[in-house]
Structures are given as structure tokens and as C-alpha cells.
């Protein structure tokens, strides 16, 4: 009569279920919907690369980068959070809202590119630590140049190349990098 033990236990303890719409709070480590901090983002696109369901799309533009996230496609696997080199991507600790239409909750974050310290045009953001992780030892010169825009970087490279020719560069001509 072991089943009677279970039944009397259940009757004595009272119901264990929760009345709708009540629900238990999620665990502290709960993996909820993904948010992104544009101030930290490097627009590297790793989150896009590891996303299995294409919930995250990173579309680089001329002056800014569009980071799009659709919770309706997300599998909440947390790989984007694990792989983000600068911890710009985080997951909410609770369950998201329900939705009726596909794509209804799609959110877009615009990551503006910082201004080039030389010319002021938008430059792709970079981060030294990430650069080091990707390419190993970073030379002092490279470290200086990562903040430049593409145009200024090319110009600096040309200038450095010309400097190698020594006096040949001292022609007095104004150098616009071409």
C-alpha cells in the first residue's frame, strides 16, 4: 500500500501546482532575451557568426553598424554572450513577453562609429585586447593606427612607406596620400 503513502503525503502537503497565470520565478542564471550595449560594441560581428538561428544580424554601414535582434527567432542558447569579446551582449534574467506575429519584437541597435582622431570621419571601432586576441602581439605603431579611419590609415601607411625612402620623400610637395 505504498501508493497510499504518496496520496496521504500529497493531501497533507496541499497542492504543489501554481494557479494560472502565476508562475515560479526563473533561476538566477536564466538565459532570457538578448540586449546589446552600443557603447561597448566593436561591430566585429562574432555574435552574428555564432548565432545558429540568425536571430542576430550585424550589417555594417558607412557611418554606423546596424545590430538587429529578433527574439522570435532566438533559441536563447547564449553563444553570442559567451563569445562577445567585450561583453557588450548580455541576456535578460527573466522570460520575455509573448508575441503574436513573426518579427513583432525585432529590435535594432545602431552602433555609431567613433570619429577618426585625424580627419573626423567615422572609423570602425577597435579594441586593443581584441586585436591582441586576434593577431597576437600588436606593435606600438599598429596600436596607434587602429583608431584611425580606413582612409587615414592608408595615408599613414603610405607616409610610412615613403619615409623608408628617406630623402626621396623630402620633395617639398604637399602630400595628400595619393
Amino acid at each position: 500500500m505504498n501508493i497510499l503513502n504518496i496520496i496521504t503525503g500529497n493531501v497533507a502537503r496541499g497542492p504543489q501546482t501554481v494557479r494560472f497565470p502565476g508562475r515560479e520565478a526563473p533561476a538566477a542564471a536564466y538565459r532570457g532575451s538578448v540586449t546589446m550595449d552600443a557603447a561597448k560594441c566593436l561591430a566585429c560581428g562574432i555574435c552574428d557568426y555564432v548565432c545558429v538561428s540568425r536571430a542576430i544580424a550585424v550589417t555594417p554601414g558607412a557611418a554606423s553598424c546596424e545590430w538587429t535582434y529578433d527574439p522570435g527567432r532566438c533559441t536563447y542558447c547564449g553563444r553570442c554572450v559567451d563569445h562577445c569579446p567585450v561583453a557588450a551582449v548580455t541576456q535578460a534574467g527573466d522570460r520575455g513577453d509573448s508575441y503574436a506575429r513573426s518579427g513583432a519584437q525585432r529590435a535594432t541597435v545602431t552602433v555609431p562609429y567613433p570619429a577618426c582622431p585625424q580627419c573626423g570621419r567615422p572609423a570602425m571601432p577597435y579594441n586593443e585586447a581584441v586585436l591582441g586576441a586576434a593577431f597576437g602581439d600588436v606593435s606600438a605603431e599598429l596600436r596607434e593606427r587602429i583608431h584611425l579611419c580606413e582612409r587615414c590609415r592608408r595615408r599613414a601607411t603610405t607616409a610610412a612607406l615613403k619615409a623608408n625612402f628617406g630623402a626621396a620623400a623630402e620633395t617639398g610637395r604637399s602630400d595628400d596620400g595619393r
Partner: peptide, 9 residues
């Protein structure tokens, strides 16, 4: 039946 199973019913 519900109470025996630990449900609200």
C-alpha cells in the same frame, strides 16, 4: 483526484 496528486484541481 487532484488533491491526491498534489494538484489544485
Amino acid at each position: 483526484n487532484a488533491r491526491a496528486q498534489g494538484r489544485i484541481g
